[in-house]
Simulated scan of single mutants.
Amino acid sequence: MIFSLATGAVTALCINVLNTHDIKLARKLYSFLKPNDVLVGDRAFCAYADMFTIKKLDCDALFRKHQSRTTTMRKGKIFGDCDKLVTWHKPKSCPKGLNQDEFNALPKSIIVREIYYYIVISGFRTGRVSLITTLLDTTTYPTLEIVGLYSKRWDVELDLRHLKTTLGMDVLRCKTPSMVRKEIYVYLLAYNLLRSLMWSAGTTYGNPPLRLSLQGTRHHLNNFIPKLLATSPKKLLQVYRTLLKVIAHKAVPDRPGRSEPRVRKRRPKAYPLMTKPRHELRKQLQTA
């Protein structure tokens, strides 16, 4: 999926079988990009072919540098202590996920911008971060703004948590592929509906939409649904504006650099996992 950093809504989706590689599936999402979009992602997507493909679509990319590439500030055109332009050369062999025709269409080299910085916040696992981007103009895109933009990548993890935990999409209950797809689409429809309410409430009453609570928006909407259904068409707009006002009433506090211990609060039950169908387990109980 592709999430909007401005609204938090899902803007693109691709589904495939379980053994499909993440990169191969993600490359299908590039067709949903629009000119001047900036795609932010983690190190898994920082590949030569992806950087070229995204730039060819009149878009830009900002990824964390892949761990297989060494980091040095002694080469390239240096702009500051932690900012430079470097030349990437085409791989010698065709990487996995590309066919030979796609590999032959790649240029011999591309120019990218590399930025690195250190994180000294207690509780953060990463101490040094190296970024690769196609936003080459240092005047239009200062170093600190690039770093600030990448820090918002974590919002995607929170959006996924909302989908899986808040809305309950962590366990899909349908049994056939077609019904599983429909189930996912219904969850995304409900999620984007909540995001649209948060956007309308925030922009109407002057609160940043991303600072509003998605769980709170869900509760308020559920409470207002009977009222919305029973209201006459003349008063429907008034009730809707009241709903927006209630949603925008209290924003989530801004907590930059917040860190929490990586532990589980609830202990798992001391039962073994169900690795066989229920009727086989019942037979084992009867014969035991």
Rank of each mutant, 00 (worst) to 15 (best):
N207F: 07
P208K: 14
S196T: 13
E183C: 05
Y191S: 04
Y205A: 01
P208G: 08
V180S: 02
L188M: 06
N207Q: 15
Y185T: 10
L193G: 03
L197D: 02
G202W: 07
L188V: 06
Y205K: 10
T204M: 01
W199Y: 14
M179S: 15
I184K: 06
Y185P: 03
L188F: 14
L197N: 00
L194F: 08
L188P: 04
Y185V: 09
T204Y: 05
Y191M: 09
T203R: 15
Y205R: 07
L210V: 11
R181D: 04
Y187A: 14
L193V: 14
R181A: 09
K182G: 05
L189K: 11
R195F: 00
K182P: 02
A201Y: 02
G206F: 11
W199R: 08
Y187L: 13
Y205C: 05
V186I: 15
L194W: 01
A201L: 06
S196H: 14
T204A: 12
A201P: 05
P208I: 03
R181V: 12
K182W: 00
A201V: 03
M179R: 14
Y205H: 10
L188D: 00
Y187D: 09
P208V: 14
A190I: 07
V180L: 11
E183V: 04
S178N: 05
P208M: 11
N207G: 00
I184F: 04
L197W: 06
T203Q: 08
G202K: 03
S178C: 05
Y191C: 04
A190V: 08
V186N: 10
A190Q: 09
G202I: 05
Y185M: 08
P209Y: 06
S200W: 12
T203A: 10
W199G: 09
L189D: 12
Y205F: 15
A190L: 10
Y187G: 14
E183D: 08
R181G: 02
P209N: 10
R195I: 10
P208A: 12
L210N: 15
R195L: 02
L197M: 00
N192F: 13
L193Y: 13
Y185G: 02
Y185C: 05
Y187I: 08
L210M: 15
M198H: 01
T204P: 04
L197Q: 00
Y187E: 08
Y185I: 10
P209E: 09
L197A: 02
S200Q: 15
L189P: 07
V180D: 03
Y205D: 07
E183I: 08
L188Q: 09
S196R: 12
Y191Q: 02
T204H: 02
N192A: 14
L194C: 00
T204C: 05
T204N: 06
S200N: 13
M179F: 15
S178K: 03
Y185W: 10
